[in-house]
Design a protein around this nucleic acid. Structure first.
Length: 461
RNA sequence: UCCGGUGUGGCGCAAUGGUAGCGCACUCGACUGUUAAUCGAGUUGUUACAGGUUCGAGUCCUGUCACCGGAGCCA
């Protein structure tokens, strides 16, 4: 007989079934039977199994039917006599695959702090919260592909090991096979010509530049893969290894770029509310009681778009006192972004046309040369979730901007070639996947929305 | 990396410088188609680590480590 997942069982017909999963709790009745709550991760809900103590194997396995143990249950799916559930399985045969001794099994049938669960990251997926987070994460990943595929974007795999330092910013993890205790040297420096790739290599911090290569041939592409930053960031919003989505589109200007970003976010939020309703109910009840209302509001209203200059005016005319100065030409600080999203507009905003000197070399210079066509999508309570721009397609302007920012044009020869041959206006953006999962679930710490978080001093599990 | 905070039974927390307690979990018993079950009893500690002050340190001081919150960097 084939095993039926609990998700299907709960919607299925009454009759004989085979269930497999992990015991969440057991409640004994002196009426001669016990209730087992079984979860197999297929959905948030458990299935209640009624185990009569008259079952032949029961006396032998009773002590093993504890929280955390894994079981296989054959039985009949029937209407429940109790109140908490409509259906339950009346067991005819129970097999214990793997017991979980109560004296040593770390998870208890009670609430645990997320800090504690991080220390047992190999067991935390067995909790309600992490099961829900990972189902939502999975659905969001699926919806991202669906959104772009429906629009005819090509899914592009950009390299993980790279020789280019994408934006000239951001510390990178070096990749090497050299003997670190005795590296070969030439002219007093490490001789990377003897390294595996024959030159110095690192883990990618972004697939954008490579994405542009393919957008300049296939029109619309998107990447969705891991990226790495060796920054010593210790916050609830940063990881050393995280997943990023980066669409890149030929013939899109900044307005098209912002339109796509807004449509994208709304699509993802709607999709997850529709397809992960039960998990989202849980988040709304236990993690953040305003999350569903917030998500609904976002999908039904338009994002406020304002220029960087307007944002500065808004901040300057407010009565709020800020720690950091509000002055044209300075970057917007977290406190400024929070004020705009949470106090002024109370919804997502898109700030665009930033000062040239605080943004990257590849962003298209506006007329006048003061600002570039960059945009950031800022969410209430979270901050920046998307950063994007129209790219500079003019060879001479791009070359000059690289020189102004002390970048070596020779290193970017292939990037410049894209402007030398068949250049086209194009745009793109990057979305931090974990930040999206964070926002959708209401989870406060980014370490709790990725299966295996990598942060400074932490790569266990 | 900077600022602030916290490290005490398995988990969550308490303890004017003076005998380390409580809740949950767990064990046993009672009761029950139960559902965070309930009621009664019981077990559980090198107070993060290393030094120091003191008659006496969980508590005060110094250092180290870990974790949390905020900031910077960003996604």
């Amino acid at each position: 007989m084939k095993r039926t997942k609990i998700k299907h069982l709960l919607k299925g017909e009454e009759g004989e079934v085979l269930v497999k999963g992990w015991v969440r709790t057991r409640r004994d009745s002196k009426g001669g039977f016990s209730f087992l709550e079984i979860n197999d991760g297929s959905c948030f809900a458990n299935i209640q199994v009624v185990a009569e103590h008259t079952l032949a194997e029961y006396p032998a396995i009773e002590s093993q039917l504890t929280t955390g143990s894994c079981v296989s249950v054959r039985g009949n799916l029937v209407a429940s006599q109790g109140k908490g559930q409509s259906k339950e399985v009346l067991a005819t045969e129970i097999q214990v695959y793997g017991p979980a001794p109560v004296e040593t099994y770390p998870l208890q049938k009670k609430k645990h702090s997320f800090e504690f669960l991080r220390e047992i990251a190999h067991l935390r997926p067995r909790t309600n919260t992490f099961g829900a987070v990972m189902r939502v994460r999975n659905r969001l990943a699926f919806a991202i592909h669906q959104f772009f595929q429906d629009k005819g974007f090509l899914y592009l795999n950009t390299p993980i090991v790279t020789t280019s330092d994408c934006e000239g910013a951001g510390e990178m993890f070096q990749v090497t096979t050299l003997d670190l205790s005795n590296p070969p040297s030439a002219n007093g420096k490490i001789d990377y010509s003897q390294d595996f790739f024959g030159e110095k290599t690192s883990l990618t911090v972004s697939g954008q530049l490579e994405g542009e290569i393919y957008a300049m041939a296939l029109s619309e592409i998107y990447t969705f893969g891991p990226t790495f930053r060796a920054e010593n960031s210790n916050t609830s919003r940063h990881l050393a290894e995280f997943w990023m989505v980066e669409p890149e589109m030929a013939f899109y200007d900044l307005d098209d770029d912002m339109d796509l970003a807004e449509e994208f976010i709304k699509y993802l939020l709607s999709d997850v509310m529709e397809h992960c309703a039960e998990d989202m109910e849980f988040f709304n009840k236990r993690i953040d009681t305003t999350i569903l209302e917030t998500l609904k509001n976002i999908t039904s209203s338009s994002f406020e778009r304002l220029t960087y200059t307007d944002a500065i005016h808004q901040l300057q005319k407010s009565s709020e006192t800020f720690t950091y100065p509000v002055e044209w030409g300075f970057a917007l600080q977290a406190e400024h972004e929070r004020y705009l999203t949470e106090k002024v507009f109370k919804k997502p905003i898109i700030v665009f046309n930033y000062p040239e000197q605080i943004k990257s070399f590849y962003m298209k210079l506006n007329e006048g040369g003061e600002t570039v066509r960059a945009m950031d999508v800022l969410l209430p309570n979270l901050g920046e979730i998307i950063g994007g721009s129209q790219r500079e397609e003019n060879y001479d302007v791009l070359l000059q901007r690289m020189r102004d920012k002390d970048l070596d044009p020779e290193q970017y020869w292939w990037y410049l070639d894209l402007r030398k041959f068949g250049s086209a206006p194009h745009s793109g953006f990057g979305l931090g996947f974990e930040r999206l999962v964070q926002f959708v679930t209401g989870m406060e710490n980014i370490r709790d929305v990725i299966p295996f978080p990598r942060t400074p001093k932490h790569a266990k599990f």
